[in-house]
């Protein structure tokens, strides 16, 4: 079992579209992956669960702990961790 702490960035918070990106980043991995909001008193939630994600109360700027457990835990945590670090915000298209 491994963990990685990241800061969540999305000015709209963890909304359904962001949750779908999180689910997508775990497609094809078998490890159990959870997310825990480290700000305040929260329990870890299933990173593949839409309802769990959107009701996790994770907001932009919150520290989040990813925990992965399984044969491909390293790759799974890498995929999700990289996504969260890069931010799931809507692209701010600039000229």
């Amino acid at each position: 079992m491994i963990t990685r702490d990241v800061v969540f960035h999305d000015r709209y918070g963890l909304h359904p579209r962001a949750a779908r990106l999180i689910q997508g980043s775990l497609d094809g991995f078998s490890a159990k992956v959870s997310l825990e909001n480290l700000e305040g008193d929260h329990s870890p939630v299933d990173a593949r669960g839409m309802l769990a994600l959107i009701s996790s109360g994770i907001r932009s700027g919150d520290r989040v702990r990813i925990t992965a457990d399984g044969a491909d835990e390293v790759a799974a945590i890498g995929s999700l961790g990289d996504l969260l670090e890069s931010g799931v915000d809507h692209p701010d298209v600039r000229l």
Partner: peptide
């Protein structure tokens, strides 16, 4: 997203 909620194991 609604489809994903319908299939949510939770």
């Amino acid at each position: 997203a609604q489809a994903s909620i319908a299939r949510d194991p939770a």
